[in-house]
């Protein structure tokens, strides 16, 4: 018999203990992600193809509208490639936000009946987002070959960029979820933030396209940095920017604080969802 001792009080777990628990339940992250993926494509004829179709349509729309009709360009990178490289980071981010922020609500039935650390939920969405990101490489690689653009050696920094990108998403998810589990107004606000965010992030335009006054946004907006970083990673089209590192440190700290706060609040989730 295991003599595992557990004390339940009104207080939230201390953060250290919480992280240990999270580690113990880590397999669940993958289990939930796997379940999401299986369920998503169950009873669809095209199955996984939908994952490629979605960025493909976005790519076509942006390329035709901005690249062809508006005749924008992106320096030495072909416009479709420029858009796609922006979309990779942006879609990863927005997927984490959309599915992460609703994850607690979506799992309400399970939350009310079984215990597990709730951070598992948004974290599992990161895994799903990552799988979708890999699928979008099936678009990127042929496109790069087509345009004859070589992959930069900077790609070795991919894990760092992924963490940066993840933190941007989780930061919002943790903070919004911790504040909005009682009153859900913030959840309604989120799509507006994401929509607006896309126009403040150089996904389909270049940073210098922004008017001088708004240039500051591109520096503060972490996603603007992440998207630039993705391009630096893939094409080495810009110089490394020290702001990226500073911004990353701030984002990382805020995300960890977000998780800490989320942990403090999650004991009440089952009472309110």
């Amino acid at each position: 018999m295991h003599d595992q001792k557990q004390i339940i009080t009104s207080k939230p777990d201390n953060f250290n203990h919480y992280l240990k628990k999270l580690w113990r339940y880590k397999a669940l992250i993958w289990v939930f992600a796997q379940r999401d993926i299986k369920v998503k494509y169950a009873q669809t004829a095209l199955g996984v193809a939908w994952t490629i179709l979605q960025p493909l349509t976005a790519l076509v729309i942006y390329t035709v509208f901005f690249g062809v009709i508006m005749n924008w360009s992106a320096g030495n990178i072909p416009f479709p490639l420029y858009v796609l490289s922006g979309l990779i980071g942006w879609n990863f981010f927005s997927y984490i936000i959309y599915s992460g922020s609703s994850s607690v609500q979506d799992a309400s039935f399970t939350i009310k009946k079984i215990y597990f650390p709730k951070s598992i939920l948004p974290l599992s969405k990161v895994v799903v987002a990552f799988v979708e990101l890999i699928f979008s490489l099936f678009l990127l690689i042929p496109l790069m070959i087509y345009y004859g653009i070589p992959l930069s050696w900077h790609i070795v920094f991919l894990p760092f960029v992924l963490i940066y990108n993840t933190c941007c998403g989780l930061l919002l998810v943790f903070w919004v979820a911790s504040f909005a589990y009682k009153k859900k107004d913030l959840f309604h606000l989120l799509p507006y933030i994401v929509n607006l965010g896309m126009w403040l992030t150089p996904v389909f335009f270049t940073s210098n396209f922004l008017p001088e006054k708004l240039r500051i946004i591109a520096i503060i907006n972490p996603m603007a940095n992440v998207v630039d970083l993705w391009r630096w990673l893939l094409f080495n089209n810009v110089d490394f920017n020290l702001i990226w590192v500073l911004n990353f440190i701030v984002i990382l700290i805020l995300s960890i604080f977000g998780m800490y706060y989320y942990n403090k609040k999650e004991g009440e989730f089952a009472d309110f969802v």
Partner: peptide, 10 residues
């Protein structure tokens, strides 16, 4: 699944 408001369970 839920936390108590007061008291303790071991």
């Amino acid at each position: 699944i839920i936390k108590p408001s007061e008291g303790e369970v071991t």
